[in-house]
Amino acid sequence: MESYRCLTLREDPALKDAAAQWFHEKWGVPKEAYLECMEEYLGEQTENGWYLCLDGEKIIAGLGVIENDFHDRKDLSPNVCAVYTEEAYRGQGIAGHLLNMVVDDMKAKGISPLYLVTDHTGFYERYGWEYLCMVQGDGEPDMTRMYIHR
């Protein structure tokens, strides 16, 4: 981890376009949707931020915070979203570091709890996340797990 640089997008706004493209490639959500959220964050219209990990100039991991991560429980907000680590970098604690970073950053801003939708089990629990309930994904036939970090 010591050779990587983890930061918020506000710490290096010049990464905005590269970050939006990177998240788009990982999740298939339009780049413009990421850019819109990132611009609101950089313009201080919201504290829902974007967190990245770099190896040199290369984005190797990231996550964001948005109001709702495409589910029916609009009351459970804000949501950590788009958690991803490049395959070659997995197993080094990078995602865990970013998860702890976002929780600490948001708590420092008075924003807690945070919520997260995932179909993974056993991973997020290692970083203090607790299963909360099942939620219905927008346009999805199956229910998905919702986690909370208090």
Score class of each variant (00 low, 15 high):
11 E>A: 15
43 G>F: 02
35 L>T: 07
6 C>I: 10
111 I>F: 08
54 L>V: 06
98 L>S: 04
96 G>A: 06
138 D>Q: 07
142 D>Q: 14
105 D>W: 10
61 A>N: 03
121 T>W: 01
126 R>N: 14
34 Y>C: 13
44 E>A: 13
148 I>Y: 12
149 H>M: 00
43 G>V: 04
81 C>L: 03
84 Y>S: 03
57 E>D: 15
7 L>Q: 09
60 I>A: 08
19 A>W: 04
50 W>V: 11
35 L>F: 02
56 G>Y: 10
65 V>K: 03
39 E>P: 01
124 Y>A: 06
76 L>G: 03
61 A>Y: 05
46 T>A: 10
89 Y>A: 05
3 S>I: 14
126 R>G: 02
140 E>Q: 15
62 G>D: 09
9 L>K: 04
43 G>P: 06
77 S>I: 02
25 E>R: 14
43 G>Y: 02
96 G>H: 01
90 R>N: 02
50 W>M: 15
83 V>G: 04
139 G>N: 13
92 Q>C: 01
135 V>T: 12
64 G>E: 02
29 V>P: 00
129 W>G: 08
84 Y>M: 05
10 R>N: 08
116 L>E: 07
55 D>P: 04
131 Y>G: 00
129 W>L: 07
49 G>R: 11
105 D>Q: 12
109 K>S: 05
142 D>K: 14
69 D>A: 12
86 E>F: 07
42 L>I: 09
25 E>N: 12
23 F>P: 03
112 S>Y: 12
12 D>I: 01
59 I>Q: 12
29 V>S: 03
63 L>D: 03
147 Y>P: 11
16 K>T: 09
136 Q>W: 00
91 G>Y: 12
150 R>A: 14
75 D>F: 10
31 K>M: 04
146 M>N: 12
112 S>E: 14
138 D>C: 09
85 T>I: 07
134 M>G: 05
92 Q>P: 00
101 M>C: 05
56 G>W: 11
87 E>T: 07
8 T>G: 07
74 K>Y: 13
147 Y>A: 02
112 S>A: 15
63 L>I: 07
20 A>T: 03
75 D>E: 15
136 Q>T: 10
